[in-house]
Structure formats: C-alpha cells, structure tokens
C-alpha cells in the first residue's frame, strides 16, 4: 500500500495502474464495511440458497429418482452451487442500480479517481461475497451428507469453474444494473432468474422435458457448469449421447468466456455513456 503523497493526474501509465488498483480496493473496502455494518443483508444472501436446498431436498427429494441411486443431495448440491452463482447476479445488479439511483456513482464520477475502479471494486467485492457464499453452501452440503469423491485438485477445479461462471454473470449484472431504467427492470430480472434457474438440469433431467425445452435446458450455461462440476466432484449426473452432454467440461469454460466477452465491453460502454 502506498503511503507517499502524490500528484494526482501526473504519473506514468504504471503509477496510473497502481492508483486504479488502489482505488478499486478502496471501493471494495466500502462493500466489506457494508457487511460489517449491515450483516443481515449479506447473511441472508449467503443462507438463502441453503434454504432452497432444504426445500428441494426435504420436500421434493423423496419424490425424485436421483441418478446413481445415492440420494438426492449427492445429485442436487453441485447444481445448487451453480444456481448460487446465478443468484449472485441479482445482488450485483441491485448494488449497481442502488448506487446509480442514490447518486453514489455520480459522486465517484466527480472524483479524480480511476473510473475503471468503480466497476473493478464492485467486481472484487462481489467475487469475495460469492467465495463466502459458496463456502457456506459446501459446508451445508457436507452437513446434509453430500461428499466429493475425487481428489482435492478436482474439487478445486470444480470451485474454479463455479467462480468462473459467477465472474461472467457479474458482468451481466453490472450491465443490466447500469442500463436499468429503474427498480422495475431490476424486479423483472429478479423474477426471470427463476425460470432461467429451473430451465436447467439443476433439479431434474432435461430428457424428461419436451424435446425443444430439454435442448434449451441442456445448453443452459448453468447446466453445463453443473454437469462439469458433478463430474469433477464425482457426483452422479444425467449423461446422454448429445454433443452438449459429452462436452460439458469444454462448454463450462466456453460459456463464461463468451458471456464475459459480451457483457464486459457492454458494461464499460454503458458506464462511459452515463456521460451522454
């Protein structure tokens, strides 16, 4: 951390980068302070997916034949990890919209700080939030009898894939949050998260859906990440002969890269367009 005094706009590209990172960290710290000052909101966010797990595992689990015959939680947890990453999009979007509506974004924009730091700080804070949320979910899974059966390396790779999906969705959340005309848009997206989450292989086998719906569900980025993660954890999943079922690992990287490639530039462009 730099402690020297500074001429603000002077400086080499390298010191500019240094300030951008320092500013991003300041913006991140702001969010971490929010956790301390308003623990309720963030804790609810972490435990909400646990409640969904209990609802589905406890209420529907008995009625659904899980693949592999090893219990519904063995099957459900990896999909729920992926769904947790999707829920993260909502909190990103909410935070971005709230800052814009309350004038905090404009305050940042009126300062001589690096403008990319506003977005970068949001990114770091939300990723940290998701790391904790994922840890809570893994802990809950272990308590409910879910286990991973591969090595620690494969487990870490699975966590990496999940966070990669979160990273991609983060940019979608920032873009929608910046582009949203008001709270109505945010509410609409919050509702849409649910059908997107269910139109996947998280809860049931897409093969049981009508063919076109099943195809959409199988290609859902959430499904490919869930499939790849099940494989890495050694949990049972729905196989199949389709290309997408055979190439889940590949697509679990390709989808997030594609989503990021679309929404990161869109987010930057929308942030700049706040000026016009």
């Amino acid at each position: 951390m730099s402690t020297q005094a500074h001429p603000l706009s002077a400086g080499s590209p390298l010191s500019r980068l240094g300030w951008a990172l320092a500013d991003a960290w300041t913006v991140t710290l702001r969010d971490l302070n929010h956790w301390v000052l308003r623990p309720g909101a963030v804790i609810v966010g972490w435990f909400f997916p646990v409640m969904i797990v209990l609802m589905f595992g406890g209420l529907f689990g008995g009625a659904i034949d899980a693949p592999g015959g090893s219990g519904y939680f063995e099957f459900l947890m990896p999909g729920m990890f992926a769904l947790t990453m999707l829920f993260g999009l909502e909190s990103t979007m909410m935070a971005v919209t709230t800052d814009a509506a309350k004038g905090v974004t404009d305050r940042f924009r009126s300062l001589p700080m690096s403008s990319s730091a506003v977005v970068l700080g949001r990114c770091v804070a939300d990723m940290l939030n998701s790391v904790v949320g994922l840890a809570v979910m893994i802990g809950a899974g272990l308590l409910l009898g879910w286990r991973w059966h591969g090595g620690i390396g494969a487990a870490l790779a699975a966590v990496g894939l999940l966070l990669l999906l979160r990273f991609a969705l983060l940019w979608a959340g920032i873009f929608i949050g910046l582009a949203a005309s008001g709270p109505e848009t945010v509410t609409a997206v919050q509702i849409l998260v649910w059908p997107v989450g269910f139109l996947s292989n998280v809860f049931v086998d897409p093969a049981t859906m009508s063919p076109w719906l099943g195809a959409i569900a199988a290609w859902n980025p959430l499904s490919v990440t869930a499939s790849a993660v099940r494989e890495l954890f050694g949990n049972p999943g729905y196989g199949g002969e389709s290309w997408i079922a055979q190439n889940a690992a590949l697509m679990s990287v390709a989808w997030p890269v594609l989503i990021t490639a679309v929404f990161l530039p869109l987010s930057v462009r929308t942030f700049r367009k706040l000026k016009s």
Binding site: A5, T26, N33, H34, K102, G103, V104
Partner: peptide
C-alpha cells in the same frame, strides 16, 4: 442532490473513503 454519500457507511467512513479516492494516504 445527485452526488450523494454512502448511506450505510458512517460519516467518518464516508469521509475517509472519499479521502482515499482523492489519493490521500491512509493516515
């Protein structure tokens, strides 16, 4: 009206944050 402070942070935390974003050292 349109350039606001953070409502969750305390008054002091707000000012320290804006100080840091004006590139003052922490102290």
């Amino acid at each position: 009206q349109y350039a606001a402070v953070d409502e969750i942070l305390t008054g002091r935390q707000n000012l320290v944050m804006f100080g840091r974003l004006n590139h003052l050292p922490v102290a």
